[in-house]
Design a binder for these strands. Sequence first.
DNA 1: AGTCAGTCTCCTTCA
DNA 2: GAGACTGACT
Length: 804
Amino acid sequence: MTELENRYIKAKRALFDKVHASLNEMQRRAVHTTEGPLLVIAGAGSGKTTVLVNRIAQIIRYGNAYYDESVPARLSAETVAAFEAAGELSAEDIEPLLGEFSASPCAPWNVLAITFTNKAAKEIVERLSRVFDGDDIAKSIWAGTFHSICMRILRSHSEKLGYGGTLTIYDADDSKKLLTAVMKELNIDEKQFTVRSVAGEISRAKERLLDPEAYTEEATAFREKTCAKIYKLYQSRLNESNALDFDDIIMQTVFLLRREDEVRRYYANKFKYICVDEYQDTNHAQFELCSLLASEWRNIMVVGDDDQSIYRFRGATVENILGFDSTYPDAKVIKLEQNYRSSAVILNAANAVIAKNTKRRPKRLWTDSEDGENIKIEECEDQNEEARRIADLITRLVAKNQYSYRDFAILYRVNAQSSTIERTFAKSGLPYRIYGGVRFGDRKEIKDVVAYLQFINNPSDRVRLKRIINEPKRKIGDTTIAAVEAIADENGITMFEVMCNADKYVALSRAAKTLTAFAEMINKLRAMLDGGCPLDAFTNAVLDESGYRQMLKDAGEAEKDRLENIEEFVSGVIEYMNNNEEPTLTGFLEETALVADVDRFDESADAAVLMTIHSAKGIEFPVVIIPGLEEGIFPGSQALIDPAELEEERRLAYVALTRAKKELYLYHTDCRLLYGRTMRNPASRFIGDIPEELVTRKEKKKSREYSPWGNASAEKPRVYFSSTDGQGSAPHADVLTINRPVAKPAARKDAPSFAAGDRVKHPAFGEGEVLSVKPMGSDKLYEIIFDRVGTKKLMGSYAKLTKA
DNA sequence: AGTCAGTCTCCTTCA
DNA sequence: GAGACTGACT
């Protein structure tokens, strides 16, 4: 290397260091390592997304310019002259020279970024738009979930797939329905083989890229052989309906790339740079997909944290991230261990808990930040006291103006824990939001309407046909449906074709009229669509022609919510039309299938957040509260017998602890009512793993005082905040006194009172209407239906209600 | 075909 | 303890 070249490289690197001056050393190294396989182990809160975004920006701006090999064979006369004039070139001087001849900048569409959630993909695109000051570049990179990327590939090569007509995606619910039908058809004993377990088995087979034939070959035990039979029929039923389940989307893409070498070469050449987020959550099929896509350029970067692998139960294999450097022996490994999120105390506690795992890459997070508050551990009598203490804590800290409600997150192991907490919060008027539960797209009415659209779009879809054929009621019962299906199978045609010609089949004579009427309606709607009817008008036509809307209207008050949801769905269609230049029904349906929820999680509301630890991954909160730290709950009961399961629970605990920025509160109880049973469990081993010097324990009140009714299941405590004067309607007068919160939420003696029918406003829940008022001592319990969040019960003196 | 009562199940979850 | 599901009855 000549003297000049050395000076050139030095100047070049100075430039890149300057561009990324805000990053730390390791982050910068990750951003600059653009060539070859790269594994980035990104600890919790270590700036993973920042690295990902900056690295993609670096690639698009400068290609492989950082690298020595990218020194031009001969520096141009211009550069040589520049060096001669300046002696040493500064960072600024080198930039214009760089782009011209040494770097090979990379077109954005040659970059592929794969994530697990739409939210993560969206965040990458948004942050890139900010870097490039506009959408154009950010929108042209291929960024998306595994499933959306695969659908994009599958769609472009549908002719090679062997599916005829329009593809349909079956969600977990549809798949289970089909599976139930298949198992019934094969006379499988439902006691011995639950749909749930068989669905899991097939899902795992697909994750391991075993098609029915390959799976059958592997099957030895009776159980596997039975599953093989089911899998075979299930898969052929999917094919008949032109349907893919979620696992198919990945598996069929891998098969396509393996089978069609020119397709593989096309994508592998196209994607010069590949980034995979949350690599610890990938399964075998996803691993294989990445390998195939990276097979030409081998510029594959994977980011993840083996300590945060918490999806083993859905097929993720930590081995992918643990073994990345043996899959790619030339891989560079960079660890991001500086944490920018949590206090030192929180971080040390998390380190101590995770250190007990054996299957992990050794690492230790560190931080520059201060020690911070000790971790508080509280022991309670039962889940009711636990919930009350949590409510008190939040109320107290908010009253001190230390935090707002939105700064608190209550993270639990199982959803069943949420109900007690929710009830307690509602009673004290403490604003909260629950994440999880029934999603918009999972609601029956939405699934029904989507099924109509799916069926019109793809009339071979049997599962959706069965869903809508008698909804609203058309007097087409199970017997008729079974007859139609049998005829379709015999003649190798679709059920819909049978229905169109129902009058020609003797077996259907009785139902022929209703069947043809249904078929005509579908054909009419199909014609509207083909005639270019806009999607929103079309959706409305479907709702009217099918009688679905009328059915809900007729039900009146009982189905008011559903009717509203349907109208919201139509708004969703309009939104899709506004966001897409060429809106199509197929496009809309695919988006609905792959985008779980239009984030209905209102981040702006000032309310405490309730969610499972799993759904909290990737989010941070100033104060994290973890209830239920008991053996058998967290770690869960299965973990007590299975060491691998225990390691997963430990990782889950690590994720939970590292969500906290400033303060951490851990709760455990002596006895707990869960799933209708009262249990007594010792405190979680994870509590014991935290070094004592980081902990402040809060003494339990003497149990005699706290539990006058003894066994929690013996008598249910009712209302604790029943009145401000102690004369309430609680079962025991002393209960009321003793259970009064240590620091009560600010009760308002002057609280305005409302009557049923009044419109009221709540700081967190928004506006609503009072449904009923029950006097409780000197206070009132309101049942209010809020416009946005539904019905809540609130105590008048605690809830900050105003007239709307 | 629809309703009601008894039965069963229950971890975590994204596409 | 709650919700989903099943099966018998009308």
